Simulated scan of single mutants.
Amino acid sequence: MTIDSDPTPVTLRWAVRLLRVEAVAVGLVAAWLVVADLTATTTHLTSALLVTAFAIGAAVALWALGSALLRHRAGARAPAIVLQLMLLPIGWFMIQGGMGWLGVPLIALGLGVTWLLVSPPTTRALGFE
């Protein structure tokens, strides 16, 4: 009989890694937005602050969901999947706007992390089976 020292499957570990990479990327965008808000000569302050707050909130949510999934909290899977599926229309509109170099990887990322989150090893680790 062998004892598994790490009950977290590789699919779940990769999903958490990718969620954290997304959190860092969105956090960098949020930092850029803060700088843009502070240095803009003219802006609609309410809109600028709302967009910045949304980016900060998304970064925090992605990091928190990754942390919860790493602790095998089953309730974090659905919100994480929703955030990943939100990448599909974003990527599609980027492709339509001529930014396919960014839109295609975003769609692939969203689908890939979603697949990792619903894969059988992840499902078992989170206690859904």
Rank of each mutant, 00 (worst) to 15 (best):
W32H: 07
V21R: 10
I56D: 00
L83R: 13
L85Y: 09
W63P: 05
G98M: 09
L109H: 13
A36M: 09
I56F: 08
A108K: 05
F93H: 15
L19D: 06
L38C: 05
P105L: 06
M86L: 15
T39E: 12
A25Q: 07
R17A: 09
L111P: 01
S67P: 03
I90P: 00
L33Y: 12
V118M: 04
L65K: 04
A48Y: 06
I56N: 00
L111F: 11
A40T: 07
L117P: 01
G75K: 07
I90Y: 14
T41S: 11
G98P: 02
L70I: 01
A40E: 02
D6S: 01
L117M: 02
L109M: 13
R17V: 09
W63T: 07
V51D: 05
L88R: 11
A108Y: 08
P121F: 05
W92S: 12
G66F: 00
G75E: 09
T123Q: 08
S119L: 06
L33H: 13
L69G: 05
G66M: 04
L38H: 04
A15Y: 04
D4L: 12
V113L: 11
R124I: 02
G100W: 08
V10R: 14
V118D: 01
T42G: 01
M99P: 00
T2I: 07
L50I: 14
A48N: 06
M94H: 10
Q96N: 10
W14S: 13
G66Y: 00
L69F: 01
P121R: 08
P121T: 14
R71K: 14
V35I: 15
L70T: 02
G103V: 09
L18S: 12
A55N: 03
L109A: 10
A59V: 03
A23V: 05
I3S: 12
T2S: 14
